[in-house]
Design a protein around this nucleic acid. Structure first.
Lengths: 232, 232
DNA sequence: GGTCGCAACCAATTTTATTTTGGGCACTGT
DNA sequence: ACAGTGCCCAAAATAAAATTGGTTGCGACC
């Protein structure tokens, strides 16, 4: 009699509640979002105590069939994704991580641009590249540089990747914001990005997906090296 | 007398308010977000009528030095970026584009995971992989598969890339939603993804960034081939 | 008579307060 | 010990009130 509980794991008596729960879920047609009644209510509906019900719910949650959140409720099915909060994201990020993200994303955009870009888009890209060279201040240069990279995303013709890049740029601007920059000087004529941009445009114009991706990757790598301080 | 207003553009008498405004902006230290007092208050501060003040603000907004929004206020500086609207994004996307985006993003996540993952995270990854194999329904398999890919993002330790992947997954689920799937059958024991996942976990566990990225790329390529119908 | 100032009104947004919900603690009775 | 009970807590949704930029209509004044 002393070892009567030995063969019964901690969730042993939960099985009864589990079957009841499973029955309720399949029987009662719950709303589109899969939300089921609050614990206190559901406990009374099933005729069990809240403590007992919670054990069953916890078990189902462990299996991933269920997800709960304080103040929200209990939902059947996989938990929906949380949309990005840029402000919160900015606080938990640093410029290096932003660069890592760009290196992860933009080479593939460059590859797709080489495949899908229209001639008009390539022409615009070349114009923006020229405008970068002609910029008379860092502020102006950065504005054209941003449009240059954005134009590549447009040329990739993938709305999802465009949206992702925009999100990334939002974070980038916020993270970069407030860093000291010489407002009166201008980019030097031998700025490394000029050649990098040239190579990217060439590869896209010549329809070389691999080359375009590589050129973009090297460009961003250069920028990161400058950022970290590995290169002047 | 009839052409007395010809030489005076509509904003002629605004110059006075403009100088006052410019003085106030530089003098009064406004909060970090660049927000300045509400129109009614600011008008009294500058000793002008609201109508007049609004003309000045409108002029500055045209120049892009200012941005306003009903209910929010008036802010000095460029307007912050708009966050992505997933619902709109879904309408303009198709499953193939989703796969292209995944191929662009996830290999790099895999690479970073091989560099930054903790042993605990690698263990969790292996567990999720085993759960995928043990799944008794496609629904359950997909739940674990999603968590598997998400765990890789976590292990990459880059909050920005995690956020981007979550956005992408949100679109993915919405796009995939409602497609027919056999609810009672289960993934076959020789499902190609099992081996793919094994290779990814191995590469991450052995700290091989390049191998992890390649394994992920090949995995997603396989999935895309099945999606398009190039492979059974 | 038409042009300009003025005030009230409007809709978008934030702020504040209230309610609901899952999670957790301490006491109690067996 | 141990489960049950009641209560409180923090997170979140919901509701209500207060702000705020934008708009319209009325009237005064040239």
């Amino acid at each position: 009699m002393m070892d009567q509980k030995a063969p019964t794991p901690p969730d042993a008596d939960v099985s009864g509640v589990l079957t009841q729960l499973y029955g309720y879920i399949t029987a009662a047609q719950l709303p589109d979002d899969g939300r089921l009644p609050p614990e206190r209510e559901l406990a009374e509906l099933l005729g069990v105590k809240r403590t007992e019900l919670r054990k069953g719910l916890a078990a189902l949650e462990r299996e991933g069939q269920l997800w709960r959140h304080v103040g929200k409720g209990t939902f059947v099915g996989p938990k929906p994704p949380q949309l990005v909060d840029i402000a919160d994201l900015v606080q938990r990020s640093n410029p290096v991580q932003v660069m890592k993200a760009r290196i992860g994303l933009e080479p593939e955009l460059s590859r797709l641009a080489a495949i899908n870009a229209t001639v008009a888009e390539i022409a615009t890209l070349a114009e923006l590249n020229a405008s970068c060279r002609a910029a008379t201040s860092w502020r102006e240069y950065e504005a054209y540089d941003a449009r240059f990279h954005h134009q590549i995303a447009e040329a990739a013709h993938n709305p999802i990747l465009i949206a992702l890049l925009e999100t990334l740029n939002a974070v980038r601007r916020a993270v970069t914001w407030g860093r000291p920059r010489p407002s009166h000087s201008s980019p030097p004529a031998d700025h490394h990005s000029f050649e990098d941009h040239d190579r990217i445009v060439d590869a896209i114009a010549h329809r070389e997906p691999g080359g375009a991706a590589d050129a973009m990757r090297r460009h961003l790598q250069n920028v990161e090296d400058r950022l970290i301080g590995r290169a002047p």
